[in-house]
Design a protein around this nucleic acid. Structure first.
Lengths: 193, 193
DNA sequence: GCTCGATGTGTACACTTGTTCACTAATGTG
DNA sequence: CACATTAGTGAACAAGTGTACACATCGAGC
């Protein structure tokens, strides 16, 4: 799994990886692959599981550091950007998988995103922010937020990892996106008028 | 190019296609490939160009049918969904390319999206909607709108083409996303307070 | 009518690929 | 200690891959 991630990190697309290629990168003979996975899709699914752990770690850190609700959005985006850089390959895999070849991987990533959105909704409820929104509308908002952040991933991962200026730009832009969404949510009336 | 699109439409990922595979689908001998393209990346770039045409056609239709600004958002989303279904393979290719293997294709698609966003900004300016926004903030809004729609593509393309119920759900949800964004834009003050 | 450029064909070569099978080295439990 | 399980090995095979080269076909313009 580490070898596959490494290849993805080097710019390859997961869908184009082969068993031999992965085992070569892992410094292991091709047949060893079958000791751990039935095929590449299987490997992908297990990577999705690990991706879940990464996302949960990120959430935990966000919750710990964003208690003072002053610059809530800005801080959260900062943490996201930091994790995206620290786990570049994982997030590359995630961005690729959303439109990937394996339906199962696709569904897995989508499901991680749904989970993330629902946790965000819980947090907002607990903090008594957005109290005027119905449950459905809060879900809508959080879904939109998660999508927006996920799309920023694409920007983030397309600039070279060391380009701090561009990364800063993306962070600022993403922050403004979220601010605009929350302004919209703040003035939202459920009938949609 | 048609053959490559056909394979993408059948669920394959563009990054995993090979020259022989494409020519086989095209009913042509492998060496013929080189009469038209230098390699697969080249093919991808030419597909991006054609994708540009598809998007422009969509824009033209949207402009023609959405003059009465009553249900502007709803109608636009409807047209988008219709085109996404009519040109399924093209949009699949677009969704894949955003996190694809070829940096050039990636940049090409991103550039098409920027163009789309700037055209949208022009239209909104011309219709005198969002008149209180600065140029930069209008660009921000349109960028967010285009991203949101592009992400919906992923949802749209992951359900089977005939599943009208789910497609309707996605259309409604996307519409609400855009409405929320525009509510946010309507109450936006450029200092970001 | 002839030539030329564009398109397609057939053959060939050197690799790479997925998967199989029988075998070996290490590991931790009784 | 012996034993079973787990992870890794090496050789082998049929099939697929990218690319090169010389040759065939065909339609447009002089």
């Amino acid at each position: 799994m580490g070898a596959a991630l490494a290849l993805v990190g080097k710019g390859r697309h997961f869908a184009s990886l082969g068993i031999r290629e992965v085992t070569r990168q892992a410094g292991v003979v091709p047949t060893s692959f079958y000791r751990h996975f039935r095929n590449m899709d299987d490997l992908g699914l297990q990577l999705v599981d690990e991706l879940g752990l990464v996302l949960r770690r990120m959430m935990r850190e966000a919750r710990a550091n964003v208690l003072q609700s002053d610059k809530l959005i800005e801080e959260s985006v900062g943490i996201f950007v930091a994790h995206a850089q620290a786990n570049r390959s994982f997030f590359l895999f995630m961005a690729q998988g959303l439109a990937g070849e394996s339906r199962a991987v696709q569904e897995g990533i989508r499901s991680e995103m749904r989970f993330f959105a629902s946790e965000l909704a819980n947090d907002l409820r607990r903090l008594r922010l957005m109290d005027h929104l119905s449950d459905a509308d809060l879900d809508l908002t959080c879904d939109l937020v998660v999508r927006t952040v996920a799309f920023s991933l694409t920007d983030l991962l397309s600039v070279s990892p060391g380009d701090d200026y561009q990364i800063g730009q993306i962070r600022k832009r993403t922050t403004r996106f979220l601010q605009m969404i929350f302004v919209g949510a703040g003035h939202w009336q459920s009938d949609g008028a």
